[in-house]
Design a protein around this nucleic acid. Sequence first.
DNA 1: TCGAAAGCAAGAGCACTGCTCTCGGAATGT
DNA 2: ACATTCCGAGAGCAGTGCTCTTGCTTTCGA
Lengths: 233, 233
Amino acid sequence: MFPMPSKSRAENRAEQTRAIQQTARRHLAEVGPAALSLRAIAREVGLVSSAVYRYFPSRDDLLTALIVAAYDELGDAVEAADSAVADRADLAARFRALCHAIRDWARANPHEYALLYGSPVPGYAAPDDTVTPAVRVSGAFMALGQAAERAGRTPIATLPVSEAEKDAIAPIQDFLDDPIDDAHLLRWLMVWSAVFGHVSLELFGHMYRGVLDYDEHFSQAVGQLATDLGLVT
Amino acid sequence: MFPMPSKSRAENRAEQTRAIQQTARRHLAEVGPAALSLRAIAREVGLVSSAVYRYFPSRDDLLTALIVAAYDELGDAVEAADSAVADRADLAARFRALCHAIRDWARANPHEYALLYGSPVPGYAAPDDTVTPAVRVSGAFMALGQAAERAGRTPIATLPVSEAEKDAIAPIQDFLDDPIDDAHLLRWLMVWSAVFGHVSLELFGHMYRGVLDYDEHFSQAVGQLATDLGLVT
DNA sequence: TCGAAAGCAAGAGCACTGCTCTCGGAATGT
DNA sequence: ACATTCCGAGAGCAGTGCTCTTGCTTTCGA
């Protein structure tokens, strides 16, 4: 027999799933996660609402897929920015690239960023599928911190770290290939918080009327953070 | 005639408005902002849904009232924590009190915190009514920074600040009674970002499985920030 | 004091949502 | 060739924000 002109069942399914997801992605970027309507997506794909449930058991499952995709995209952006720095030994440049990659992606995809780092969707518990891609970006920070440690760069003014704190951040030490100084790790974690705090405050409008030039302010802050980490030679 | 057993019109209105708002507040704390149902609130107050519109023109107006109330509550908590430090000259203690007040309030009222510092509600633009109470908490940071400047405390390792950055943060200088060193102000802004970044990342689950003891980790970070600001003598 | 005006709650109704269930038709594997 | 599985459509349920009309009550001015 000749092959059917219509695609096979599996092909069709994959295609529809992809169509739904990327339409959802577009809607997400336009109207935000809370206003994401399954029916509207179905209409645009050319399906009736109930048919969508063949591909995604619920609206939350669709959201999960979008979250995973967003984490991956951000992870790609961050890793690409790091890799783009030719001089691998220029840790300050790599750090700056990393920070700006996060902010640039966030500004280009505000709704996606809000979905990842803003308020958790109510009644929605992130399944474990999301934690692996989520860890990529913080992992990039930690990897850079490890490289800095290996290069002998030391953050400034590190306070003694309590035993309780050492225990508290032990999982992160375990995540690293080999452990680094606890005080240094704490400093890197603080920088991680500072960067996402900055981006969130800016993006969610809390610097409105306080800071006039967001680009300049972020660059200055990142520069200061880089020296705090001892990356600037 | 004897006075009517029923209250006057104005009294009734004020009472109903208050009843609606505090019921809404309770629902907000329980189910979060996105799941806040005007009809459910009306049911509990003992009204039909359409009657609520006499008091709040739309769901967003009700949300605005809740946002303002939440900002005020957080502002109260922060200012109270600062005032509770007996030794006014102990700037490090005041700073720690301020930071912990923010985090404690956030942990006690996660949905309210998310409403203020999480993703903005879609299609909802915060009116100017919200900016005044919103500024109280960042104002507390800045006031403390000003006190530190007056006391001659200098943050560590301040990078030279570009002219562009000076212009960018000029509105904050104007907000202060008298301007402080630009590099110092930048450091205080960075600390502001770091604190809210830390609280947001913790509360929104991004430290899950990375940090085991949130209390200890926050204390350590705040302690480090205090020394960064030159508050620890 | 009386009547017009304004305020208020209720109810019906509209357009929308996520989601379930049933029912035909089409592809699939034995 | 047939039973099974899959799929899309449609109806329907319970819920949402919001509007409009309909009576009733309170308030205020002549």
